[in-house]
Simulated assay, not measured.
Amino acid sequence: MYRWFIALLIFLLLGLQYRLWFGEVNVRDIWDLNAKIELQKSINQELSQRNSELEAEVVDLKKGQAALEERARSELGMVRDGETFFQLVEPADENR
């Protein structure tokens, strides 16, 4: 009688172990998902930092004239009234 009971318990244990390691949702899948979650958390943290920097730049552009003026000068080549724009051109190579 005890042999059948022990055999049944061993069979149940093996069945549960099989489901744990090779079933539809197994331990390896959970480990993979946890690794993907950690990777996504680090990506989200980097993106959150970038968003904070962009938000600070937007606030600065809305409230500060200096940042707006600097951006207009560097990216659009704008000058103020009364200023003279000088463009320095490299001389052509005479050896050609």
Score class of each variant (00 low, 15 high):
Tyr2Arg: 06
Arg3Thr: 08
Trp4His: 13
Phe5Leu: 12
Phe5Pro: 13
Ile6Gln: 05
Ala7Trp: 06
Leu8Ile: 10
Leu8Arg: 06
Leu9Cys: 07
Ile10Arg: 15
Phe11Trp: 08
Leu12Arg: 15
Leu13Val: 12
Leu13Phe: 07
Leu16Val: 13
Leu16Asn: 10
Gln17Ser: 15
Gln17Phe: 09
Gln17His: 13
Gln17Trp: 09
Tyr18Arg: 15
Tyr18Leu: 12
Tyr18Phe: 13
Tyr18His: 11
Tyr18Glu: 09
Tyr18Asn: 11
Arg19Ala: 11
Leu20Gly: 11
Leu20Met: 12
Leu20Gln: 13
Trp21Gln: 14
Phe22Val: 05
Phe22Ser: 06
Glu24Tyr: 04
Glu24Trp: 01
Val27Thr: 02
Arg28Thr: 08
Arg28Asp: 12
Asp29Lys: 01
Asp29Cys: 04
Trp31Arg: 03
Trp31Asn: 04
Asp32Ser: 13
Leu33Cys: 12
Leu33Arg: 06
Asn34Met: 13
Ala35Ile: 10
Ala35Met: 06
Ala35Lys: 08
Ile37Gly: 03
Ile37His: 12
Ile37Gln: 10
Gln40Lys: 12
Gln40Arg: 14
Gln40Trp: 12
Lys41Ala: 14
Lys41His: 14
Ser42His: 05
Ile43Ser: 07
Ile43Val: 07
Ile43Gln: 09
Asn44Glu: 10
Asn44Ile: 12
Asn44Val: 14
Gln45Phe: 11
Gln45His: 07
Gln45Trp: 07
Glu46Gly: 01
Leu47Gln: 03
Leu47Phe: 01
Leu47Ser: 04
Arg50Ala: 14
Arg50Asn: 08
Arg50Cys: 03
Ser52Leu: 10
Leu54Gln: 11
Leu54Tyr: 12
Leu54Thr: 08
Ala56Trp: 02
Ala56Ser: 15
Val58Thr: 09
Val59Ile: 11
Leu61Met: 11
Lys63Pro: 09
Lys63Thr: 08
Gly64His: 04
Gly64Tyr: 07
Ala67Met: 01
Ala67Glu: 00
Leu68Cys: 10
Leu68Ser: 10
Glu69Val: 07
Glu69His: 04
Glu70Met: 00
Arg71Lys: 06
Arg71Asp: 04
Arg71Pro: 00
Arg71Trp: 05
Arg71Val: 06
Ala72Pro: 02
Ala72Ile: 09
Ala72His: 09
Arg73Trp: 00
Arg73Ile: 01
Arg73Cys: 01
Ser74Gln: 03
Glu75Met: 05
Glu75Trp: 02
Gly77Val: 04
Gly77Leu: 11
Gly77Tyr: 02
Val79Asn: 04
Asp81Trp: 09
Asp81Pro: 00
Asp81Ser: 04
Gly82Phe: 05
Gly82Thr: 01
Glu83Lys: 00
Thr84Ile: 00
Phe85Arg: 01
Phe86Trp: 00
Gln87His: 04
Glu90His: 04
Glu90Met: 11
Pro91Asn: 09
Ala92Asn: 10
Asp93Ser: 06
